[in-house]
């Protein structure tokens, strides 16, 4: 049973992809497990569970953060964006990732896509160095790294034409 005393389990409102989710969480639950195991945002993957791989990345208030190292009780009130929203809104990254083969097993890929989206939000025209800097916290065991550079630059171009 969760402990409901002061400082124990409590209700928080998570604002995920623009929708509010009011749920009861224990302090020890991290945001990744709440998103993935409880709310069904299965695009937020568990790989290392220690903040080292980026596969559980979500965008929180504009920052790419690793949800496995964030307590869910502390995530209330912040804007959380997951890969599901990026997909639903048909961000060009989804298409360019498929075009450029920027995946193998694909397990890490949503984490890369979310990180890349956060990058493009801040920097619409990233060069190779900027992309490497943004992605250096994402582990791809399949080693797909170079393809991410191509896919992200292609998405940046599509965004530019879309705006023009």
């Amino acid at each position: 049973m969760p402990d409901f005393e002061e400082g124990g389990a409590r209700e928080v409102t998570l604002k995920i992809n623009g929708d509010d989710f009011r749920i009861l969480v224990e302090p020890r639950e991290n945001l990744r497990e709440v998103l993935h195991d409880r709310l069904g945002f299965t695009g937020t993957k568990e790989m290392c569970d220690r903040g080292a791989c980026g596969s559980c990345t979500v965008i929180m208030d504009g920052r790419p953060v690793v949800s496995c190292m964030m307590l869910a009780v502390e995530a209330g009130g912040h804007d959380i964006e997951t890969v599901e929203d990026i997909e639903r809104k048909q961000h060009p990254l989804i298409e360019t990732y498929a075009d450029h083969n920027a995946m193998q097993c694909g397990y890490c890929t949503p984490g890369f896509v979310v990180t890349a989206k956060a990058l493009l939000d801040r920097n619409p025209d990233p060069d190779e160095e900027a992309i490497k800097s943004a992605l250096e916290g994402n582990i791809c065991r399949c080693g797909t790294y170079p393809a991410h550079i191509w896919a992200i630059q292609a998405a940046a171009n599509r965004l530019k034409t879309r705006e023009a």
Binding site: G51, A52, G54, T57, R63, P64, V65, V66, M69, M70, T115, S133, A134, E136, G137, N138
Partner: peptide
């Protein structure tokens, strides 16, 4: 420090 994601937090 660590990774960009960790530095954001």
């Amino acid at each position: 420090v660590a990774t960009p994601h960790i530095r954001e937090m």
